[in-house]
Design a protein around this nucleic acid. Structure first.
Lengths: 167, 167
DNA sequence: ATAAATTTTCAATAATTATAGAAAGTTTAG
DNA sequence: CTAAACTTTCTATAATTATTGAAAATTTAT
């Protein structure tokens, strides 16, 4: 496979995977492009490469900055703004996990907590609701905690320990 | 909070979380409903409770069965079909993780492998593409392996060990 | 074999979400 | 201060995805 084909394939695959980590196509494609770029890119560069409009580029770049995985880079002598993404995959994973936890998982855990605290009126259906949502709550909380810890700081150490345990 | 309010809240929250694990709203809501039900439900029951059409119910029930988290239950003397979902959260998590890995993660890992095997033509940009996609490949593979192992059979044992390690 | 009960399929429609492109806003150089 | 360079915002439109509802298919009882 030659460079251009490989590049296109990467951007489109990684882009379509966006849904898996909860972002839209354009956002994922922009991030992909920056991820394999050897230098910061301007909005023009991105529009040009991905064939998307200025507005779309602007909006999605901002969202990527909100996620904390893309940053503005000011290049001396240049009036345009340039952008780069986090290049270290571990850091990238850490940011993404943290954001998803904050935005999606934590709020759900909160609701599960509330729901599982429903007053037990003695009926079978209420007992079932409480039991099941409590189980889900505990699972979600454990998974969230694990994910965050795993992906945090001491990654290398913990990952190694984990792999030893698991293998 | 009273039963009905809690139930509605659970179904709508868990339903909207569907996107997080890659399924649509109706599918997630049906699963939620079954999850807190004390007995198998018929298509009529589900349509009625969730106010969705027959076609929608049928389609989404089938998808849930494809995912392996809902099963048909035949009730003697009844002509209708009845449905139940996996009630054990660990089993549920196992099924979901396995399916997502198979449907989404594994194929992406395959593409990353291909892309990172691009012929090195000596240019900087090709080197960068190879380096970055290789890093992503390794990360994705590790994450996928961990997830599957964690969620598999020896769950209780491994979860306990993990929690000890991580805490 | 037939008809009633039930489920599935599928084309039309609705709802949602993404994108374009131009107007408005902002920043910078001189 | 002004004009050019650039970015953001916002509404109209396009694309995608979900949902309905009715016809077709299937199953079951007699």
């Amino acid at each position: 496979m030659e460079y251009q084909e490989a590049k296109d394939k990467f951007i489109s695959t990684w882009g379509s995977l966006g849904t898996l980590w909860g972002i839209n196509k354009a956002m994922a494609q922009i991030q992909s492009l920056l991820f394999i770029s050897t230098k910061p890119l301007s909005m023009e560069d991105i529009m040009e490469e991905l064939k998307i409009s200025r507005g779309n580029t602007s909006t999605n770049l901002r969202q990527l900055m909100d996620w904390g995985i893309v940053t503005k880079e000011l290049i001396p002598g240049e009036r345009k703004e340039f952008f780069t993404t986090e290049k270290d995959v571990q850091e990238l994973a850490r940011h993404i996990a943290k954001e998803r936890s904050r935005r999606e998982i934590k709020p759900v855990i909160k609701v599960l907590k509330e729901v599982s605290s429903t007053k037990d009126d003695g009926t079978e259906k209420t007992k079932e609701l409480i039991k099941q949502t409590k189980a889900l709550h505990d699972l979600a909380e454990t998974a969230d905690t694990m994910m965050n810890k795993i992906v945090n700081q001491e990654q290398n150490w913990i990952t190694k320990s984990l792999m030893k345990l698991i293998k």
